[in-house]
């Protein structure tokens, strides 16, 4: 446990040492701010009382997905690839840590960074509150869904960086997996029966729609959490395979 905390600390200082962290955070806030502004303007013009701007914010726009699937590979790409390239993986893997602790430490560091980015958007909620009543349920379930989705995506990025020596390759690989995951929804249009059901279950747009509406569906929770566990386990296996190579 101490080892995991030490890795989280180290990775966070790596993040904030490099300009990349500030670029990611800055563009994240800029884009989300813009989206929020547009949503706000549109909603107030239509005068529709039903639609909550925050609900649209979480997964309701093309921008949300674009930001997420680009930002997460950028956050995770260095975690394993850089250690490999610098050779520091050797000191890391010979420290008294289990492979799981190493993966969990790095995973958590990326998650903390992602969490911080979203935490800053809470300012928007406060802005909204100045204009009227807020339905807190959907806001919190929206944040919950966004964080769980982040965990799932980070675990995928974690896996690609663990099997790669080049951070750009790791990022592109993660981007490819995430894009395919998003694109697989299209199969629901051309398939029927069980196949369609599987892809409908894995439809991330639908999952996020539920969370944004304030619906916390166990099936959605199970999907995101088990996906995370799967890729964390694969990352551990990738590290272990390196020792057997």
């Amino acid at each position: 446990m101490n080892g995991v905390l030490a890795i989280i600390r180290k990775e966070l200082s790596h993040y904030f040492f490099a300009p990349m962290a500030y670029i990611v955070m800055g563009s994240f806030l800029l884009m989300n701010g813009f989206v929020f502004y547009v949503i706000l303007a549109a909603v107030s013009r239509a005068g529709s009382a039903g639609a909550s701007p925050m609900a649209i914010m979480f997964g309701g726009t093309f921008f949300f997905w674009l930001i997420t699937i680009i930002m997460i590979p950028v956050i995770t790409m260095k975690l394993g690839a850089e250690e490999r390239k610098q050779g520091t993986i050797e000191t890391l893997l010979t420290a008294p840590l289990s492979d799981l602790e190493i993966v969990l430490g790095k995973f958590s560091a990326a998650f903390v960074f992602y969490f911080l980015c979203w935490l800053l958007t809470f300012v928007y909620v406060l802005v909204l509150r100045a204009y009227g009543e807020i339905d807190w349920g959907p806001v919190f379930s929206g944040y919950l869904g966004t964080l769980l989705l982040g965990m799932f995506f980070i675990s995928i990025g974690m896996f690609t960086t663990m099997i790669s020596k080049n951070q750009i390759v790791a990022a592109i690989f993660a981007l490819a997996i995430l894009t395919m995951l998003m694109g697989s929804t299209l199969f629901t249009f051309i398939m029927s029966g069980t196949g369609r059901e599987i892809f409908a279950y894995a439809d991330l747009l639908g999952v996020m729609e539920n969370f944004a509406r304030g619906v916390i569906d166990t099936r959605n929770l199970v999907y995101l959490l088990s996906g995370t566990c799967l890729f964390v386990a694969l990352s551990v296996k990738a590290l272990e395979a390196k020792r057997w190579q």
Partner: peptide, 15 residues
């Protein structure tokens, strides 16, 4: 029980 100095001594440059 082991203190190890690997070949080429890899270190984190930005710490």
């Amino acid at each position: 029980l082991i203190g190890y100095l690997p070949e080429n001594n890899p270190l984190y440059e930005d710490l």
